[in-house]
């Protein structure tokens, strides 16, 4: 872009476009997504139907809503292993608060937002205070939340799932916001797809066009250097954890308002799906590099694979194998692409 107004630099000219393209973090994911798409188009007859695509987009969106903040967090150099169960916690809090205090469900939704953000704040605060690896801290939060989810649910409702809140006041309007769906020409589109796309757009805007985005890259790519030039490293890290919490709240409300009950043991293991989507999307495990669009493509690959296997009428047990192979391939491809890009620079 800067080259447009200035005389072209002869050292730059030939490699520029190819290098720019290769330098994009999401390139590997886009290539992978195309490959998976072509593969299942041939392997499964029903894969290309509109109804299948809407199902795929829905599964992609449920993972994608969380993959976005997890990707930002990874760009900022940290992990959050509690992200999966935090979604369940958020749903449980809304449900139990509303049911026990027989308030309007919107009161539960609001309390849940506060509680979930507090968990994110706790993660971030512990991280910056103790300076322990985020892996350990959020592993602790993960275990504690898993226990609390099961324990509290059993204590209050006497079972592993919550009471139904479908007949409570405010339920229809909350459902419209978090779990509605429309039929467009026989194809069902769920509202989570809109949430997902909006979050991807917002995160991309933040990353590339705001000061906070600059700080996220800097904190992940060189925290000491960032601090030395005056970047608020602590605030940035805490903000990233609260971003994860915010999206966990959105996901949690979706689960609650689409099924009207919550299973207290759910969510365990999903944190890895978010991380996998982010890594397939080109986020560097060591921080400082990646994109929200890449994470979205990673989530889309997840959606295509998990459903494509069903459409191809294979045993769903194969899914995990595919996901693992994809993760390795994507990581290798990304590493290779980045090496090429840097060597040419």
């Amino acid at each position: 872009m800067s080259g447009a107004s200035l005389p072209a630099d002869e050292r730059l000219a030939p490699a520029s476009l190819a290098r720019r393209l290769l330098g994009r973090p999401e390139l590997g994911a886009v290539a992978g997504a195309a490959a998976v798409f072509v593969f299942f188009s041939f392997a499964a007859d029903s894969f290309l139907r509109a109804a299948s695509l809407s199902t795929i987009l829905y599964s992609a969106s449920t993972i994608g809503i969380m993959a976005v903040p997890v990707a930002l967090l990874m760009i900022g150099g940290e992990f959050d292993l509690s992200a999966g169960v935090m979604v369940t916690t958020s749903a449980l809090v809304t449900s139990m608060f509303s049911y026990q205090l027989t308030a309007n469900v919107w009161a539960g939704v609001a309390v849940s937002l506060l509680v979930t953000l507090a968990i994110g704040l706790f993660n971030g605060f512990m991280l910056v205070r103790t300076e322990l690896p985020s892996f350990i801290i959020t592993l602790g939060t993960f275990l504690m939340l898993t226990g609390l989810n099961l324990g509290f649910t059993k204590l209050i409702s006497g079972g592993v799932s919550t009471q139904a809140i479908g007949d409570m006041e405010g339920f229809p309007s909350a459902k419209a916001l978090f779990a509605s769906q429309w039929d467009i020409g026989g194809v069902t589109l769920k509202v989570t797809i809109l949430w997902w796309l909006a979050l991807v757009a917002l995160a991309t805007w933040i990353l590339l066009r705001t000061r906070a985005g600059n700080w996220i890259f800097a904190v992940g790519g060189g925290a000491d250097a960032a601090r030395a030039v005056g970047v608020p490293v602590v605030k940035t890290r805490i903000g990233l954890y609260m971003g994860v919490a915010l999206c966990a709240w959105i996901s949690g409300q979706h689960i609650l308002f689409s099924y009207d009950v919550v299973q207290s043991g759910e969510g365990v293991g999903n944190e890895f799906l978010y991380i996998i989507a982010a890594v397939i999307g080109g986020c560097l495990m060591t921080g400082g590099y990646g994109s929200a669009v890449g994470a979205a493509v990673g989530a889309f690959i997840f959606g295509m694979t998990s459903n494509g296997i069903v459409y191809a009428q294979w045993n769903p047990d194969w899914f995990k194998f595919f996901l693992g192979a994809m993760l390795l391939l994507a990581t290798l491809l990304n590493a290779w692409v980045r090496k090429r890009a840097e060597a040419r620079a």
């Binding site: 600059n214 060189g222 970047v231």
Partner: peptide, 26 residues
Amino acid sequence: ATVYQDLAVVPLMPVWRNFFLGSEPT
């Protein structure tokens, strides 16, 4: 303003983002 021996810049970030890091104009 300090130019450090060991922590002057964030290597993976573009030059222009590094130049303004911490004092970005908006």
